[in-house]
Design a protein around this nucleic acid. Structure first.
Ligand SMILES: [Mn+2]
Ligand SMILES: [Mn+2]
Ligand SMILES: [Zn+2]
Ligand SMILES: [Zn+2]
Lengths: 149, 149
DNA sequence: GGGCATAGTGATAATGATTACCATTATTAG
DNA sequence: CTAATAATGGTAATCATTATCACTATGCCC
């Protein structure tokens, strides 16, 4: 299940390789990977740290930040920054791209994706001679649960 | 041209009123409003400060932050936070909502809006029982100018 | 298994954007 | 003009994130 690439025999040739390939296996990185894939998603670094501590009490916050950045570089996690400016993380890799409906009342993140919107975004970019590499769509509002109250 | 609301006679009744209504006219606020509406848009607070200083050399950075927040509260400016986490500002009010194509090479912001996408976003939200109040669509990639090089 | 080079780690200092604080200044009703 | 107080500027505080550095863990070699 854990697919952290490890152990290049020779020194890294490029910065990218160094940034995205682990030279050694690491228990902490594995734990942080597991936390991301353990159900509750959209955690910020502090919350990841809190969860990771349950499994590895001594783990430091700096290691959490390092591992999250590393996993993002590997495509094993993805980062996004909502309106409050605090980065949040979710498992990446095989998980498909999706957008977020963010409830401003309870803070919940609803994941959604509309192929038609994705297609129109490509067209919109093309119309401006723009080559898109990634995009971020966040819809803020009130979720069904909060509206019902 | 400057439409800063001023002068409530009585003490503010609510926090919102206090946040969005100026009790007194202020030359600095006016200057910052003018900077936002003076052409080059998508400035961050530091850049607004730099521009404002040309007109009012003594103006402080704290005042810039205060005025920007105030203008956003009035609907006279809007704030958005791109991937680097540093808030940027543009004139609000009568200007219509728009999305951004952001060039990761030169940093340029291209403004665009596609009514079909807007409509589909509403539908997507509705499908999840979600009442949207605002949204943010940012497409990152390479602009025509940078691609041509 | 032990040695070695070095990637990884944890504590903490540094950073950078933004906000809070407070003494001073500017604005405006009367 | 004067009094009341909103606005301001300098700067300390805050908060998330990154850099630093001495120390530890990993894994290839023999
Ligand atoms: Mn998600
Ligand atoms: Mn814009
Ligand atoms: Zn909710
Ligand atoms: Zn460009």
């Amino acid at each position: 299940m854990v697919i952290i690439i490890t152990m290049p025999r020779k020194p890294f040739k490029t910065l990218e390789a160094r940034a995205c390939q682990a030279a050694r296996h690491s228990k902490r990185r594995e734990v942080i990977f597991e936390v991301l894939n353990s159900g509750h998603s959209h955690l910020n670094a502090e919350e990841v740290h809190h969860e990771a501590r349950k499994r590895l009490p001594g783990i430091g916050i700096a290691t959490v930040y390092r591992a999250l950045k590393f996993l993002c570089g590997c495509g094993q996690a993805s980062e996004f920054i909502p309106a409050d400016g605090v980065a949040r993380y979710e498992p990446g890799g095989s998980r498909a791209h999706h957008d977020h409906l963010i409830c401003t009342s309870c803070g919940r993140f609803i994941e959604a994706v509309d192929p038609a919107i994705e297609r129109l975004q490509e067209k919109l970019a093309a119309r401006h001679g723009f080559k898109p590499t990634r995009h971020k769509l966040e819809i803020y509002g009130i979720c069904a649960g909060c509206a019902g109250k």
